[in-house]
Design a protein around this nucleic acid. Structure first.
Lengths: 185, 185
DNA sequence: TCACGACGGGACGGTTGCGTTGCGACGCAC
DNA sequence: GTGCGTCGCAACGCAACCGTCCCGTCGTGA
């Protein structure tokens, strides 16, 4: 029976290593070193660093992402932005997510995993939010949820992980209002 | 005197290598191999792969980025989106840019170079566009150009390099209109 | 008490890239 | 035609990591 504390230590080390050096530079030796574990313990559980990461991403995907239901489009959008900004400001996640997204452009397996763990989840949330807004009459029939997601999350992702600028007080409120204004049209 | 055709071959190989495997995995051996050149020829010109890439990025930065002046905010925004989508759909650039942006989060030198080559340029363009719109009375006094840039480029970057979705006909027109609507408020 | 299995650690041969060096070939200026 | 400098190429010793194997230790369940 594999020891669970060792498994957890390895998982944690993978996250840290992924954030510190990125997927491309990450090595199993480095993970084992960081986890204070023999390489054997890693290979006994996973075949390669790819499987390790796919496993982690799948675990994140399994958590699911809650869809807001505040009763207004603005409230829902603001809520989504709050959640997203929390994730993208986390020091580990803000390194790991963009890194894996870039890696996904070169590796279909990572691409599929990321898609299931993040993009599909987000698109699902967007679909729920848009449908609710349509039913309330806040958005016209046939509004495209994907386009809505672009307009809501795009600017935030750009600012936090591309420009790597700060998030001034009230920025999320502004952004939510802007997105709602953009969507209604 | 260093032969210029060799220098050009190396520069080209760096771009291709950067797109194919990314900065982290890129090796000087690989570059020389791809360029059909000895390692000596590379080391005679640059100290390391970092210097190689910094040099390339600086060359891009030197080109400059033209600011549109169509006479309307919508026209200017649409023009910026056209240029950006052209770059982000280029098969090499669409790999290299996100890769270097992620690398920039770990390496201050790359960060500075990218900032000068891309972000500062874009912020300059945004500043010009916003100022013109304010003078025309299309935007209120004191509109923030950075926020404008987030709203204009963010959704496009998100769609093209994160979701890696397609760009439906009319999407840029929609996006430009949405951005203008979001900005006025 | 005892056997089993996972543990950390270390060593293995093999691969890849590092940055440097020496070589003979080639091209160009003088 | 004679040098000089760059060229491609191959080799160098060094380092890191690969995936595997063997060891002695330790904890647990029968």
């Amino acid at each position: 029976m594999l020891r669970e504390d060792v498994t957890d230590a390895i998982r944690g080390a993978v996250f840290e290593e992924l954030a510190a050096v990125g997927f491309a530079r990450m090595s199993i030796e480095g993970i084992a070193r960081r986890a204070g574990v023999g390489k054997t313990a890693v290979y006994r559980r996973w075949k390669s660093k790819l499987h390790l990461v796919l496993d982690l991403v799948a675990a994140v995907a399994a958590q699911g992402m809650p869809a807001p239901a505040t009763g207004s489009l603005y409230g829902d959008v603001r809520s989504v932005l709050e959640l997203a900004s929390y994730a993208l400001r986390h020091p580990v996640a803000s390194q790991v997510i963009p890194d894996l997204l870039v890696e996904a452009a070169r590796n279909p397996e990572i691409s599929d995993a990321i898609k299931a763990a993040l993009l599909d989840q987000q698109q699902g949330v967007a679909a729920v939010v848009v449908r609710a807004a349509v039913e309330r009459g806040e958005l016209p029939e046939g509004s495209d949820p994907d386009r809505a997601l672009d307009l809501i999350v795009g600017p935030l992702y750009w600012r936090l992980t591309v420009v790597r600028g700060d998030l001034p007080k009230g920025y999320l409120d502004d952004l939510a209002a802007s997105a709602v204004r953009a969507l209604k049209g």
